[in-house]
Amino acid sequence: MSQIAAETRQGHIEVRDFALSYETIDGAVEAVTDTQIHVEAGEFVSIVGPSGCGKSTLLNAVAGFLKPTSGVVTVDGSVVTGPSAERGMVFQQYSLFPWKTVRENVEFGLKMRGMPKFERARAARTLLGLAGLEAFENHYPERLSGGMKQRVGIVRALATGPKVLLLDEPFGALDAQTRIIMQQILTNMWQRLKISVLFVTHDIDEAIFLSDRVYCMTARPGSIKAEIQIPLERPRQQSMMMSSEFLALRRGLMSLIREESLKAMGGEITDLGMQGLGIELQGQSIPDIL
């Protein structure tokens, strides 16, 4: 734990002039364009936006899984060229290793780093204790509930003491109650470890409740539509979600997203319509059918 605490106040993420297109058979699909975001050291930042706007794309680029078509991603000044243990990631599908016990999952990053068996077991136990999972250290993930799985996922990502934690809709598959508990656990861990967090979600309440700042993206091709400061004081309580301040923020974000969601769906609908028309005209003309 002490070595994790020693690496504090790092993890400044900078995404500049970012664009990313996917190569497909129908040509390039522009997922994200002209995007600038940053996360200060120790800051909690969320990204919200309509489905398919490129949130995951952006996050995966920060993780180092995707190369930007243009622009650059840096963490503490050095350019991201591939995945690394300094950027921990939590996935919606949990993605725990089924063949490893809870503790072995948490130990994985430390093992990769060459930490001796005994030491990493001790470190893993400490971390599992923080997440209330010490009783489950020898369980295989298959037997855990969704909430427990994701706690293991978070602990596993934190075990190597990353500067940055990236989460892609981590609580999307959980029920409302579990989700709230998970949010509090994440907040606790974040405050304790003082790392930077970039959090993707489609849940506006979640974004406001957790974040210092929220980026709202436009429909595809995604770019930053708005950047909203969340001045709610910390520690935040569940009751704050009823406060007028919270509700005002919520209303603001809601209308931003609704606009974009409509745009996204409208776009798709006209797209489909056009395609249907195209096929009819190209394929069989009316005399053919007759």
Partner: peptide, 12 residues
């Protein structure tokens, strides 16, 4: 995704 998870944890 498991391969990605491993890469994020520093696996070569």
């Amino acid at each position: 995704v498991l391969v990605r998870a491993a890469k994020c944890l520093g696996a070569r």
